[in-house]
Design a protein around this nucleic acid. Structure first.
Lengths: 144, 144
DNA sequence: TTATAATCAATTGAATAAAATTAAATTTTA
DNA sequence: TAAAATTTAATTTTATTCAATTGATTATAA
């Protein structure tokens, strides 16, 4: 037992999380390229598709992204005419994001993406499910 | 069962990986700030400390980082005098990285960092261990 | 030997990220 | 009610990260 063991890369818990996250995003790349979406833009659209209309703040909270990241992402999605933004009538500070018709049309094309990723991952559904459960649990705990 | 269920954020396996990875890096931030290291610089130093001397290519492979990321990281670490780089005598294409005396001195101060992170995470060691095992397994499979 | 291919690191441009600041509006409190 | 504090989102700045390309070097094949 070496006192330096604890700072070996192989003994870091966060590292495989960091590395795997980036590796999987790389798997998404060729698929999302067809729709001119980055991974961040893609997950942002997932939430907007599901909610149809959502406040900027709530969107950031769900995605764990702060305004400095989210603002340019939404600007890009708006330029692509997938969403539009407007300020709340009741409270002018609040920005609301809504999916456009063009955005909803893209939703139909995107439907097959998760399936393609699962094929590329090639891991038992059961394994993925238990892994996701563990990650969600830790994520909830940390985000408090 | 809605056909749109599969593109809900909550059903994406990669998302908690991506979000948790960034959340944990945020936990590192205040700790690593004291040493003027980013998370990427930190894990890069972990490998260099362990190997003492390593080729650029091997370093990138271990960290899952390509030259576009690693080049500026090493440039910064060299400016901080923690490492030095030189090209191989045998093959001028190959860059070799070595830890400096100052770099090795920092190693001693860094020893407590993993402990601090475990405290912040506040998760059973057993849970973390099994999680890491699963992640490592998938990472190995994907990186083939 | 010469031409071609492969390898390697650096560079470039776009996207992502965090921190600090600004600006506007609302809520609280004195 | 008026002032102060808080909330909210955008902007700005600085830094990081990634994919694609470039340029240099070495290895291989004709």
């Amino acid at each position: 037992m070496d006192k330096y063991d604890q700072i070996k890369l192989e003994n870091q818990i966060c590292f495989p999380l960091y590395a795997l996250s980036r590796e999987i995003i790389k798997l998404y790349k060729p698929i999302l390229d067809k729709y001119n979406l980055t991974y961040t833009q893609y997950i942002t659209m997932l939430v907007i598709w599901e909610k149809e209309k959502i406040g900027f703040k709530d969107l950031g909270r769900l995605l764990h992204l702060d305004s400095g990241t989210l603002t340019p992402v939404l600007k890009k999605l708006e330029a692509m005419e997938l969403i539009h933004k407007y300020r709340s009538k009741e409270d002018d500070r609040i920005v609301i994001v809504e999916v456009t018709e063009k955005g909803n049309s893209l939703k139909e094309d995107i439907l097959h993406v998760p399936e393609e990723i699962y094929c590329k991952l090639n891991i038992e559904t059961e394994k993925l499910f238990t892994l996701k459960k563990q990650l969600d649990e830790i994520l909830t705990q940390i985000s408090e």
